[in-house]
Amino acid sequence: MSTTMQRAQRHTSVARRNTLAAIAFLAPTAILIIVLRIVPAISAVRDSTHSGLPGSLAEPEFVGFDVFARLFASDSFWQSVRQTLFFNVLVNPIQIFLALVLAVLLTRNLPASGLWRTLIFLPSAVPLAGSTIVWGIALRPDGPVNGMLELLDIPRQPWFTSPDQVILALIVLASWIGIGYWMMFLIAGLNDIPTVYYEAARIDGAGALRTFFSVTLPMLRRPLLFVLVADTVANFVLFAPIQILTNGGPEKQSNLLMYDIFHTSYELSDPYTASAELVVLLLIMIAIVVVQFRLLGSSDGEE
């Protein structure tokens, strides 16, 4: 009886100590995140219920959900949502699949693999505006990429100048930047898998493919969840290449939501419509991230 009470007491004091420790560990980051991200995001949500003339110094007026109503009635907004989803449905699986393949390849003890990793990572260190200019020139209808295609007897492609190919061209550009970056996180994850598991699989006579699915993938679950979520977010908020190269065109086919938010807020000085679009974008991202956590999160963090 008394021992149970003692244990319970000790339990509460341990719990209190843990909570204090957690507060101490979390405080700096939590404060920064709340002040520099969450609070401005909430004020952006607030802005979406206001309206005023672009750039006007006068106080905006409260209009309820009018801005959303106008947005939802506009065809170009829905086209923008559609293209955003289309781009992301393609680009994320492509990037993660290739990043995973390369990560596996470059953790196989090949000679100088550190060098190859660095070279593949290099594009993500190039400032976005720089890589955009480079690809804008490389993918010009009379540019070097088409020159190479011609050598292979493939006809020249219009890339960024065609409404049908602009998303494809953006995928090429985004993947060139992103694959090496996400690959680094997957390599870190792969290195975390103890070799005993592979040895066990070998003794069981498992082939390379089966080992990959029964050992590598399950053991890689946590880093993979990070890469999946982070890559998805990165691609949903990508806009610089569109701003520099296409301005949302041709025929509004590359007018992705984040570009439109940036454009509306910075270039057209209309923070209200931009905030309403931001709310929509956030809701879409939250929905997708929730699904991703459900898929890969399973027993994470259980004590």
Binding site: I286, F293, R294, D300, G301
Partner: peptide, 20 residues
Amino acid sequence: VHKGVTRWLVAGVIISTASI
């Protein structure tokens, strides 16, 4: 725990909306 994350994300949305 991940159900928890989901729940809190949704709650966050509701709180933000309420702040309007």
